[in-house]
Each structure stands twice: as C-alpha cells, then as structure tokens.
C-alpha cells in the first residue's frame, strides 16, 4: 500500500512535468487548497492502513469531499472577503501533523516489537 502511494506520487510528478499541462492561474489558489486536503486524506489513509482499519469507501469519499470543500471554502472566502481558507489550512495542516505523529508511533512500535522478538529468539 505505501509502495503504491510512493509510486503514484513519483509517477504523477513525472507525468506532470513531462506533459506540460496547465490551468488558469486564477484557479491555482483553490487547487492548492484542494491539494492540501488531498494530501491530508492520503496520509490519513496511510495511518488507517497501519492501524489496520482501512476502508476503501471512506477513503475515496473523504478524499473527494475534503478536496472539494477546501477548494470551495477558499473560493467562497474570496467572494465574501473573509479569509475562510484559514479554516482549511488549520484543520488539514493540523491533521497532517497529527496523522504523521500516529504513523511514526505505529512504525516505531512495530520496529521495537520486531527487535524484541529478535532478542528473545537469540
């Protein structure tokens, strides 16, 4: 699963650079907000996978709705003159760190477990 993520990411970046696609710059900000939400969803998926609670449907719906909501919030904020995108940045940014912390813990736990087993075997 993690391997698929890395392959997808690297492949996507390579594809984007080689294919010379572009969208209007005025949408760039909203897309960036959506991007933040999407990254959050991916990290969340990695976390739930490590905790063995991963569900395909939850992941996909979360991915799409979060990205859409973040983009729409940024757009709405622009229209209203209130920086609503702060909400998206704070929530998704915060969750990103939280998820990363959990992933780190889980990985360290697994590593330590393995080490313990190795020691007992000897």
């Amino acid at each position: 699963m993690l391997v698929a993520m890395v392959i997808g990411l690297v492949g996507g970046i390579a594809l984007g650079f080689s294919l010379d696609i572009s969208y209007p710059t005025e949408y760039s900000f909203y897309i960036t907000m959506g991007l933040l939400a999407a990254i959050d969803s991916i990290v969340g998926a990695a976390r739930s996978h490590l905790e063995e609670k991963y569900n395909n449907l939850i992941f996909i719906t979360g991915f799409v709705t979060n990205a859409l909501l973040a983009g729409c919030l940024a757009y709405l904020g622009d229209r209203l003159g209130v920086p609503l995108y702060y909400a998206a940045i704070l929530v998704f940014g915060g969750r990103l760190f939280l998820n990363l912390a959990v992933i780190r813990r889980v990985l360290i736990d697994k590593f330590l477990e393995k080490k313990d087993k190795g020691i007992t075997k000897k």
Binding site: M1, A4, M5, G8, G12, I13, L15, G16, A38, I42
Partner: peptide, 18 residues
C-alpha cells in the same frame, strides 16, 4: 490509492510549473 496519489503528484507538478 495509486491513482489518487498520481492525481496529487500531477497537481503538485503542474502547480510548480505554473
């Protein structure tokens, strides 16, 4: 997951080029 991360990578690289 591979497909969605591909999308993310695509957007990132497009963003960088723009």
């Amino acid at each position: 997951i591979g497909f969605l991360t591909l999308c993310i990578g695509l957007v990132i690289s497009i963003q960088i080029t723009t």
